[in-house]
Design a protein around this nucleic acid. Structure first.
Lengths: 354, 354
DNA sequence: TTGAAAGCGTTACCAG
DNA sequence: CTGGTAACGCTTTCAA
């Protein structure tokens, strides 16, 4: 049984043993219809006896010029990424859309501004999918250098890439209008990161202008438009991420300003859920003392107590579309115009009249 | 700028253009110290001008005999997997342990009994990590066929693999003893899946004997030992997974038995949290009317209301060890004996005297 | 239905 | 420090 340092058998070994050519053995594995069933069986049998495990995936890729994986580039580490239900839904939907069994999913976690370019350079992937990266993510430059087809989800805007986004600005406006219609005049914003430096805190107009994330920029614009105010007229907190704890922390600050806001616009449901928790910490009732609006409409939003008023986007659809764009690019198609998914406002119990 | 159908430049193209050999160009990329800085610069410059993106990762892998990825095999689909905080922690810790920037993470989601063997056959990976798969997962047979080094986390027991587990039986016993010490006599068990058929419901001793998951078997044994009863003397519910909703559903059933249990032993914190929710649905107070014990001690356990009494295992450490085992295997080492992590009981507020 | 030969793009070894 | 030459293991025409 001990194979020791014996050289691994190859197609050639099997071919020689059976007494046929390499091509025939290759066909035995890849095109069973190209040879007689009997011969094929003899080949497979011999292969098994010799301990040949089937065509080497790497060698096969070199010959076919297909890497067989899709590189999924994240803007954060794995644990943060997986704590984000929105990402989870999109990734799941993307992977099941593309899953032909032929393609694997190469996860490229990031630090700060996305995956390291060296990782991208070495990836055995023939397409890349970027999930919500900052404008100048180095990984994207590397994707370009390699001329890998690219699908961008949400952000940033990359020339020559296939893109799927949601109507961020419109959605944010919807949320803000909802609050003003309810009579809220003191509204604060709980925002995603503006930079990749991990900073958190109140946002200055200057930092806002230098923002490196399109989504954050657009949503802030939308909020301000819906509110009918300028950036310096409303408290904005920059959270370093989109998770619940980030929301709790930011809301704690926003809710201890004077005058205290009567409503919070949050860029994700998780952020909003954190805000509800912070309100709770401070003895504020939602929605009696504080209205909270989320973004995404993840499952948690409707399960929450109180159920969250939020801007609904179809996350699964976003993943599906991204997958289909990827498939099309892989098929040689040129990237088309951006697909923008519509959003709607889902009114639940976390908002009430001022 | 249009490259049209022009053949992609290769190492050779660059070498010819610069007037050096292929080897030298290769060295320019991989061993800068093997040539003069001037020559190297000239090479890189020409490469850029020609639009050469650097050594092709697949070709390089063929030559170096290194695939450059670790295949992480899951027992469930992506969305279920990422909803499990325990998996998330382990995976994050594993990936940061192994991350030399050289290696990528190939995610192999499963359906029912793990990844499809064909996916494993095609994966450009030089090592596989199995996360909590059933005893006879087909993917494992494929790993063996390919003679890929294998690290198994939790289960199953695979000959010739490096393994890291936790003291499941001991932990379960700890949990059960805690309850009996508190005077509980009517205790029920909320268990993981026993089969890969997605079934849920009360467990028969027969199904228990046929269980295909070591962890489930061992924990049930541990619970029974700690309780000092036989399998047919205690209600056991088989949940199809380890998530919160599964727990809620199972607990709803267990808590409507007559006589109603005064305590629940749950195989994961998520399951336990679902059980707390079910108790809440039924108007039962935890721990006044019902004691609940979890397993894992994920962050959610201490955040919960009430904070969860649970069997603590060091998930991050488990991931780290798995990563180190993988590194060692990659280095040519033979698998050693199984590493079993100790567990402790963390008493919090979800348990009280009967 | 089968086989021969020409790649696929690199790295590794060894001589100079 | 540089270059020749031989792998690496497979797929794919094209002819027979």
């Amino acid at each position: 049984m001990s194979q020791g340092r014996v050289r691994r058998p190859t197609l050639d070994t099997v071919a020689r043993e059976v007494g046929v050519s390499r091509a025939t053995v290759s066909n035995a594995y890849n095109r069973p219809d190209q040879l007689s069933a009997a011969l094929r069986e003899r080949i497979i049998l011999t292969a098994t006896r010799l301990g040949y495990a089937g065509p080497d995936p790497v060698a096969r890729s070199l010959a076919t010029r297909r890497g067989g994986a899709v590189a999924f580039m994240l803007g954060s580490g794995l644990s943060a990424a997986f704590s984000d239900p929105a990402l989870t839904i999109v990734l799941d939907s993307l992977s099941s859309t593309m899953d032909s069994g032929e393609r694997a999913l190469l996860l490229m976690p990031g630090v700060e501004a996305g995956p390291r370019p060296e990782s991208v350079a070495r990836a055995h992937a023939d397409i890349a999918v970027a999930y919500s990266l900052p404008d100048d993510a180095p990984a994207l430059a590397e994707v370009r250098r390699r001329s890998l087809p690219l699908v961008v989800i949400d952000q940033p805007v990359v020339p020559d890439s296939a893109r799927v986004e949601v109507a961020d600005e419109a959605g944010a406006t919807l949320a803000a209008r909802h609050l003003t219609a309810l009579g809220h005049r003191r509204v604060a914003i709980l925002a995603f990161a503006l930079g990749t430096d991990g900073k958190r805190g109140p946002v200055t107009p200057q930092r806002l202008r230098a923002a490196r994330f399109r989504v954050t920029r657009d949503r802030v614009s939308g909020y301000l438009a819906g509110l009918g105010v300028r950036a310096d007229q409303v408290p904005i907190w920059e959270a370093p991420g989109c998770l619940r704890d980030h929301g709790r922390e930011g809301a704690r600050w926003l809710l201890t300003r004077d005058p205290r806001p009567t409503a919070l616009l949050c860029m994700s449901d998780e952020l909003a859920l954190g805000a509800v928790r912070a309100a709770d910490d401070l003895g504020l009732r939602v929605p009696a003392d504080l209205s909270v609006v989320g973004f995404d409409d993840t499952p948690a939003a409707q399960w929450a107590d109180p159920p969250l008023t939020t801007v609904r986007q179809d996350l699964a659809e976003k993943g599906r579309i991204a997958g289909e764009l990827a498939l099309r690019l892989l098929d040689g198609a040129r990237p088309g115009p951006v697909s923008t998914l519509a959003v709607t406002l889902t009114e639940r119990a976390s908002t009430a009249s001022a």
